[in-house]
Amino acid sequence: MIDFSHKPTIEGEKVILRPFKTEEDFPYIEECLLDPEVVKLTGSSPEYNRDETIDWYNTRNKQVNRLDLAIVDKIQHILIGEAVVNLYDEKNHRMNFRILIGPKGRNRGLGTEATQLIVDYVFKNSDLNELTLGVFAFNPRAKKVYEKAGFIIDSIDKNDLEFEGEWIDSINMKLTRNNWIEKQDKKSESMRI
């Protein structure tokens, strides 16, 4: 069983990951969710129900079997996205990871840092064996971020999403605890040199 009832605040150099403060954060998460690039890159439906979305974010901090954290830009002091660990697979003791960065947080390394922060937190504070994710082939920027964090390609789902009349592949990636430990060891080794 997994227990993410404690919602941490994780501070990096550029971002802070923290529990959602729905009233304060909602205008910013709404801007992210309605952004055409976010809709495209996440394969989301362009249909949007504001009341359902508010209800959803009001319940994020109460979830015990998943971790939903707001990504806050330390310079602007506003929410610029979210990092989520969800879909617990008890048999294989793994979970899914996803992240989204809205228009005010792009192209400054914030998503890269947020990804590394949450991956490190999960492997340091749980006994999960693996994190998995899916990224659409037309999102090479996200794929590169995931590779930096240690994710490797596991499989490809051909023609997984139809977007503007074209079929897009979904790239399935994974990061095992052992690979994460090896990456940490290499990082420590290079710091000693």
Rank of each mutant, 00 (worst) to 15 (best):
M1N: 11
M1K: 12
F4I: 09
F4C: 05
S5A: 01
H6P: 06
P8F: 04
T9E: 13
E13W: 03
K14I: 06
L17P: 13
R18T: 12
Y28T: 03
L34F: 00
D35S: 05
P36Y: 00
V38Q: 00
K40C: 04
K40T: 02
T42C: 10
T42V: 02
S44V: 07
S44K: 08
E47A: 09
Y48C: 01
N49H: 15
R50V: 02
E52A: 15
W56A: 05
Y57D: 02
R60C: 11
N61Q: 08
N61W: 04
N65C: 06
L69G: 03
A70Q: 07
D73H: 03
I80G: 01
E82A: 11
V85Q: 08
N86M: 13
H93D: 13
H93P: 07
R94H: 00
F97Y: 12
R98E: 13
R98L: 13
I99F: 08
L100R: 03
L100F: 10
I101C: 07
G102Y: 04
K104H: 11
N107T: 11
E113A: 05
E113I: 06
L117T: 05
D120W: 08
V122Y: 12
N125S: 09
D127Y: 12
N129Y: 03
L133D: 03
G134L: 03
F136M: 09
A137S: 15
P140M: 08
R141Q: 14
A142F: 05
K144Y: 11
K144D: 09
K144T: 10
V145S: 03
G150E: 04
F151G: 00
D154M: 01
S155H: 08
S155I: 08
D157F: 11
K158V: 03
N159S: 10
N159M: 04
L161R: 12
L161Q: 07
I168Q: 06
D169Q: 09
N172Y: 14
R177K: 07
W180C: 06
D185L: 15
D185M: 15
S188H: 12
S188A: 15
M191A: 14
M191L: 15
R192K: 15
